[in-house]
Design a protein around this nucleic acid. Structure first.
Lengths: 281, 281
DNA sequence: TATGGATTGGAATTATTATTTCATATTGCC
DNA sequence: GGCAATATGAAATAATAATTCCAATCCATA
């Protein structure tokens, strides 16, 4: 074996792609197969791989030799190394983190627990977002004159970030909170041309539910982020999202809710900008 | 092979863990090795694995047979299948999400972008948390009479969640915000027996920095969460954490900061509970 | 279209590897 | 402490797989 033998998969891949056109027919055939089915090369036997690729075992060995390996076995090692070095899967990683958090005492375990909860929530929502609802919500919010943001207690941080972001995007918005106890008045200004983003999770803060009820009775459309279809918030909402946040030590992660909230906000900003551009042309 | 042979890795794992204590010594030894080094089982030869685990090849085969396989080869298939089926790596997954977010237009891409940003941030902080600083911060906060929470603008949601959690844990705290413009007075009440959690990221909100300066001059110890050692917040802090939050569309993720903040809060709660218990006994 | 060189197929050979066997050691039980 | 049952070690054997070899085929070139 000379010194230029590819030792890692990426180098090997590049080498094969470079030489692709100067390779004899059957060798090229096995080369293509190898890049398309690297797992098969890693696990199979020379005979089984050759059969799958439609060539003779000897061709497979010639292929390896052309690349500078002294036989199929050494070529196969590269393909195995690739699988070995590939990081552990997302799920395993999470499971490990969660396990450490559960069994392990100590403060580090607490930290791991929160990271795991946040990751789990993100992972979950990433696969579950209903795109139609998402589009509906964006459309609804994009045409609102003022966006009211409603969330209490543990959901409040999300609301405050939404309000911050909407402000940055120059979208008129009103966070429903008032040190002076003027929430009811604030709500009474909302009209059907406005819209609400309401966020509440079980146990639903009574104030949030009550305010959502009032505001929906005024005909203001509500986009809700909540945790189940039984949520009282869902019944008042035009569009609602179910977000399952994992919790740790009694505190729910907000990461998935945050990601959704930010996506909604920025998407609304984009949609408005597009609409504005259209009107001008 | 009877019908109860584990065909997937998880089942196999569970089976092994169940029987762990009823297995003969050497078999148990190889069982432990198998669960600790699944990749070696997938790729190695019976002889090489046996050598690494410090047993004879025949023991390895007996182990496989105990589990219902008819030999090492069929056991090995399960370990190989695991590698095959294992999802793409965490990094690959994130890269895919990010790529989709960048190239892809549409609103779904925005959502993916925020999820990717949050995941990246969590992943990053998970490996970088300095445990010594973490312990120091917890000790410092646990002995404070009142914990002041200071954060403005984009960091404010984190502060509000900390305040919520501290309240839930019955830890006296004060969020430094005042609609009536009384922040300066609020700060003046803080004493060296209190402590501050301050959060600020570039571009540092001037108000946050100024308040941190004043409060540190009063001798109140500060735990800071910020983004670099050049942060003006770091110079006022007794302990500080560097958190690198990924951003998307101009908005920074808060997921890592949130996780750290919650971990701090809960850890402080635990430490106080422990200390209280000790004093009583 | 004839010729030399390169390529390919298939079987024979060699090597490696899993499995079995049997002697020995260990353990649990009366 | 002795006996049977179980577990272990080491080497022999069987199975499987990689590699080699050679004849057949293909292809480019004169």
């Amino acid at each position: 074996m000379d010194e230029r033998v590819p030792r890692d998969f990426e180098t090997l891949r590049t080498t094969i792609l470079e030489r692709r056109h100067s390779l004899p027919k059957r060798i090229a055939q096995i080369a293509a197969y190898a890049l398309d089915n690297p797992d098969d090369i890693a696990f199979g036997t020379a005979a089984s791989i050759a059969a799958s690729a439609g060539v003779q075992p000897s061709t497979l060995i010639r292929f390896a030799q052309q690349l500078g390996f002294d036989g199929f076995t050494s070529l196969q090692l590269v393909f195995r190394e690739r699988l070995r070095e590939r990081n552990s899967s997302y799920d395993e990683r999470l499971a490990a983190l969660r396990a450490k958090a559960e069994e392990g005492a100590g403060h580090r375990a607490i930290f791991d627990g929160f990271v795991a909860a946040a990751s789990t929530s993100l992972n979950d929502i990433s696969g579950r977002l209903n795109e139609d609802h998402f589009e509906d919500a964006i459309a609804l919010l994009a045409k609102a004159e003022t966006i009211y943001v409603l969330a209490k207690r543990r959901s409040y941080p999300v609301a405050s970030y939404i309000a911050y972001a909407l402000g940055k995007l120059k979208i008129r918005n009103q966070l429903i909170e008032s040190a002076a106890g003027l929430n009811a008045e604030m709500i009474s200004f909302a009209s059907p041309r406005d819209a609400v983003i309401a966020i509440s999770f079980s146990p639903y803060a009574p104030a949030a539910i009550e305010e959502a009820r009032v505001i929906s009775e005024q005909g203001v459309p509500i986009v809700a982020i909540t945790d189940s279809s039984f949520s009282p918030l869902a019944q008042f909402a035009k569009v609602w999202f179910e977000v399952a946040e994992a919790d740790f030590a009694g505190f729910r992660s907000l990461s998935a809710t945050m990601a959704l909230a930010m996506a909604l906000t920025v998407a609304v900003g984009e949609k408005r900008r597009d609409a504005g551009r259209k009107r001008k042309t």
